[in-house]
């Protein structure tokens, strides 16, 4: 069952096309990672999903309701955290959290207190004195102490220290375990890799790849470092082998997923002394898609490991 479904979202600002037919689906109980380079259209997509911008074309629904027409109804069950939040300078963090909870009409007082102590926020301070990280905490506490069914998080951990980041990750996992859905836009790929069930990659206003990490990994190559008793000859003639580099006794290269079997059979015949393999990281995927070339993959396994 999907909680969020967007089809063919297009947004034009004057002549500039910010989004060009974006499709997106988030299922119930799923954490969906939304990644892409700066200016790719992540925030524009999110603003359309929040009913803040009106799409030029296409349709988006959350909980089966239209995001523009039924924005108010939808927002009662949605919590949003932007990447860069400005708060009202002469109100305290505590006041702002309460106002957000009050406007949504639901919220859990105990949870609010618990999160304030976990995130180590002083709610009695005026917002003008907060650093970026502390402002971010205000938004996160307000979001996670609400009874939302869908969390829309746009680079929510920017400015947080590593400790707070791990608390954020706990919050996301807890929400997921409660059967809630999360749309997480982030540049911290390790975070996405850790938390997300499925990932969508957007580039220049288009979704270029969507799927589980496992599915996406099929699209790319596994990194190998091999040391053999006898030198491997004519490795470069083998199908599906890329980026061969020799270092000391070892050789490193990448192999297309569909050719793994053949290549491994081939190299074992040379007598393996040492074999290291690493799955492609999200970063490999990301770089490959973003640059539109396989430049990083060519740079050798050492870099990818």
């Amino acid at each position: 069952m999907n909680v969020l479904r967007a089809t063919n979202l297009t947004k034009q600002f004057g002549k500039f096309t910010a989004l060009d037919g974006v499709d997106l689906e988030v299922n119930k109980g799923e954490v969906f990672g939304f990644i892409g380079p700066n200016g790719a259209g992540k925030s524009t997509t999110i603003r359309i999903l929040l009913g803040i911008l009106n799409a030029t074309e296409g349709r988006a629904e959350i909980f089966g309701k239209d995001v523009w027409g039924d924005a108010v109804e939808i927002h009662k069950r949605v919590a949003y955290v932007p990447g860069d939040i400005n708060l009202w300078p002469n109100l305290t963090g505590g006041e702002v959290i309460d106002f957000f909870l009050n406007l949504r009409g639901s919220g859990n007082r105990n949870r609010r207190e618990e999160l304030i102590s976990r995130f180590n926020l002083d709610p009695a301070k005026k917002c003008r004195t907060y650093s970026k990280g502390n402002r971010q905490k205000v938004a996160l506490i307000a979001a996670f102490s609400s009874d939302a069914d869908l969390y829309i998080l746009d680079e929510p951990t920017s400015g947080l220290d590593p400790l707070m980041e791990s608390i954020f990750q706990e919050c996301v996992i807890q929400a997921k375990n409660e059967g809630k859905s999360v749309l997480l836009s982030s540049h911290i790929l390790s975070e996405v890799e850790k938390l997300c069930d499925r990932v969508g990659i957007i580039r220049e206003g288009k979704m270029i790849e969507t799927g589980t990490l496992k599915e996406l990994r099929h699209l790319t190559r596994t990194n190998f470092v091999v040391e053999t008793k006898e030198p491997i000859v004519s490795l470069n003639e083998l199908k599906g082998v890329h980026g061969i580099q020799k270092a000391d006794q070892a050789v490193s290269f990448q192999v297309d997923t569909e050719e793994l079997d053949n290549v491994l059979k081939f190299i074992t015949s040379y007598g393996i002394i040492r074999l290291e393999s690493a799955p492609p990281t999200l970063e490999d995927l990301f770089m490959r898609h973003y640059e539109g070339t396989s430049r990083t993959l060519e740079s050798g396994a050492g870099g990818a490991l």
């Binding site: 929040l50 009662k76 949003y80 860069d84 939040i85 400005n86 009202w88 957000f100 829309i152």
Partner: peptide, 15 residues
């Protein structure tokens, strides 16, 4: 301008 209206709009409040 400071992005505060966006937060309000993401909550159940009218356009």
């Amino acid at each position: 301008e400071d992005g505060r209206t966006e937060i309000i709009r993401s909550l159940p409040s009218g356009r």
